[in-house]
């Protein structure tokens, strides 16, 4: 770790103010991604701006068919909610207990790791990401590998998840890290069937071919014979692109079977 100034923000404006006035600042939420990269000296910010003391930022509420999760809500807190069981179940399977006790939804989405779980929920459930400046439709949020629609210094404040009619998340976890090799959220929402896929490609995406097939017939067999194009999928030590391609179908079917159960 290099030395840096630890700056504790008391409210959103304060946080942004500190960020703007610094030549090189970074927000810290749960620190589960940021702190390891600081320790390995992969990052060398002047200022680390702590969001943990900002009031209301970790609130979770449920109103008018929408579950609203504050950016600083930790994975263990989301796992304890009940209005969208698929979301709670997803949160309960992130990493390990230590990670879930620190890591936050805001940090996870801002980081946009290709293997993170929440992006599948944002796309699969049709969530909206609120920042200090605007509301961003989930479908527009994930841009590329570790790249999001957030502007420099923009702060996620909360994520609104419309409560689906039913939804299920199936995850094939990396044996070492427990991140998703492939994760698929299948949801029947007021706006139709949605399928969000994470882990497979540079960033999470919706699989429209599956959405169409499942809209016609919400059963695992509806996915038989649909070709998943894995040519642009990630290929690494743990999984080839072809294996990921196959897992997308297997996980989607598992999710559909859970829906029916």
């Amino acid at each position: 770790m290099y030395s840096f100034n630890f700056r504790r923000a008391s409210n959103i404006e304060d946080a942004q103010q500190i960020h703007q006035s610094s030549s090189d600042a970074v927000y810290v939420a749960g620190g589960m991604t940021l702190i390891p990269s600081l320790k390995l000296r992969l990052a060398n910010p002047d200022d680390v701006v702590d969001l943990s003391q900002i009031e209301g930022l970790s609130a979770i509420s449920s109103n008018d068919g929408v579950v609203s999760v504050g950016a600083m809500a930790r994975h263990c807190e989301v796992a304890a909610t009940s209005d969208i069981p698929a979301l709670a179940s997803l949160a309960s399977r992130i990493g390990d207990a230590q990670v879930r006790n620190r890591g936050t939804i805001g940090g996870s989405l801002a980081n946009n790791d290709p293997s993170a779980d929440y992006p599948a929920a944002v796309l699969g459930l049709g969530a909206t990401i609120h920042t200090n400046a605007r509301a961003i439709a989930g479908d527009d949020f994930f841009v590329d590998l570790f790249e999001t629609a957030l502007e420099d210094g923009e702060i996620i404040t909360r994520v609104d998840f419309p409560i689906p009619k039913r939804a299920a998340y199936a995850k094939f976890a990396n044996q070492a890290s427990k991140y998703a090799v492939v994760g698929v959220m299948v949801a029947e929402t007021d706006a139709g069937v949605r399928v969000g896929v994470t882990g497979a490609a540079a960033c999470a995406f919706r699989l429209t071919s599956f959405e169409e097939a499942l809209s016609a017939n919400m059963s695992a067999s509806a996915l038989d014979g649909i070709d998943v194009d894995s040519s642009d999928f990630n290929s690494d030590l743990h999984a080839s692109a072809a294996y990921r391609g196959s897992l997308v179908t297997v996980m989607a079917k598992q999710a559909v079977e859970q829906l029916a159960a």
Binding site: A176, L237, H238
Partner: peptide, 28 residues
């Protein structure tokens, strides 16, 4: 089932942390 020390062709250790090297856990 789990553990594998892997080097890439240039001799970099590809499994140099617990993100990639799978230590057995009780649940495994």
């Amino acid at each position: 089932l789990l553990e594998h020390g892997i080097y890439d062709a240039d001799g970099n250790l590809s499994t140099g942390s617990y993100m990639d090297y799978t230590m057995p856990r009780a649940a495994d």
